[in-house]
C-alpha cells in the first residue's frame, strides 16, 4: 500500500464522492415521491392507473438496473432520444427505486391493523379521512424499515452508474486503476469512501427505525 499514490488520487475521489452523494440524494428523493404516489394509487385502487402502475412496479423490480441504464443510454439514442449519462442514471435509479419504495409503502399501509380501521370508522370517518388520519401516519411509520433498506440499497446501486461512464466513486476508481495499474490503493480508498457515506446513513436510519417502532407499536 503506497500512501503517496492514495494522496495524489484524493482530489479525483473527492469529485466522485460528491457526485455519488448528489446522485444518491436526487435518486432517493425522486424514488420516495414516485413510491408514495404509486402506493397511494394502489391503496385507493384508482382504476386503470392502478393496473398501469402494477405493471410498472413488477417490471422495474424484476429487471436489473444495469439493463435499464443500457437501454436509456445506448438504445434510446437509436430511436432519437438522447440524454446525458447523468440524466439516464437518475431516471434509471428513480425508475427502479420508485418501484421498491412503492412496495415498502404499500406493505406499511396494509400493515395498519383492522382494529385501527374499525376504530376510525366507528368515529364516523369517511374513506378519505381514514386514509389521512389513520392509514397514512401509521402506515408510513410501519414502512420505515423498508424505507431504510431501500435508501441503503439505492446508494449502493449508484455504483452501477460506472457502466455508462458517470464519474461517480466506482467509475473514478476504475479509471484510476486502468491508468496507473494500482488496484490495492484505489480499491481501498473506494471502500473507505462508501463506508464514510453509508455508516452515518445506517446509524441514522437505525435510530429513526427505533424511534418510530416505539411510536407505532406502543398502543
Amino acid at each position: 500500500m503506497d500512501w503517496t499514490i492514495i494522496q495524489q488520487s484524493l482530489p479525483n475521489f473527492v469529485q466522485g464522492f460528491k457526485l455519488t452523494l448528489w446522485l444518491s440524494l436526487v435518486g432517493i428523493v425522486g424514488s420516495i415521491i414516485v413510491g408514495i404516489i404509486t402506493s397511494l394509487v394502489q391503496y385507493f385502487r384508482v382504476p386503470v392507473l392502478k393496473q398501469i402502475l402494477n405493471v410498472y412496479v413488477e417490471v422495474a423490480r424484476n429487471t436489473p438496473l444495469l439493463i435499464q441504464l443500457f437501454f436509456l443510454y445506448y438504445a434510446f439514442p437509436v430511436m432519437g432520444i438522447k440524454m446525458t449519462a447523468e440524466t439516464c442514471g437518475i431516471i434509471g435509479l428513480i425508475f427502479l427505486g420508485g418501484a421498491y419504495m412503492a412496495e415498502g409503502f404499500t406493505g406499511g399501509f396494509n400493515g395498519v391493523s383492522q382494529n385501527q380501521l374499525d376504530a376510525g370508522e366507528a368515529l364516523g370517518m369517511n374513506q378519505f379521512q381514514l386514509a389521512r388520519y389513520v392509514v397514512l401516519p401509521q402506515g408510513l411509520s410501519l414502512s420505515v424499515p423498508a424505507l431504510a433498506a431501500n435508501i441503503i440499497f439505492l446508494i449502493k446501486e449508484t455504483s452501477i452508474f460506472s457502466v455508462i461512464a458517470i464519474p461517480e466513486l466506482t467509475n473514478t476508481a476504475l479509471d484510476l486503476i486502468g491508468m496507473y495499474y494500482r488496484s490495492n490503493e484505489y480499491l481501498f480508498v473506494l471502500v473507505v469512501a462508501y463506508a464514510i457515506i453509508l455508516i452515518p446513513v445506517i446509524l441514522l436510519l437505525d435510530w429513526l427505525e427505533r424511534r418510530v417502532r416505539y411510536g407505532a407499536f406502543g398502543n
Binding site: 385501527q116 374499525d118 389513520v134 411510536g215 407505532a216 398502543n219
Partner: peptide, 8 residues
C-alpha cells in the same frame, strides 16, 4: 375490547 387508541 382492545381500546384501539391511535398510537401516533
Amino acid at each position: 375490547q382492545s381500546y384501539d387508541l391511535f398510537p401516533n
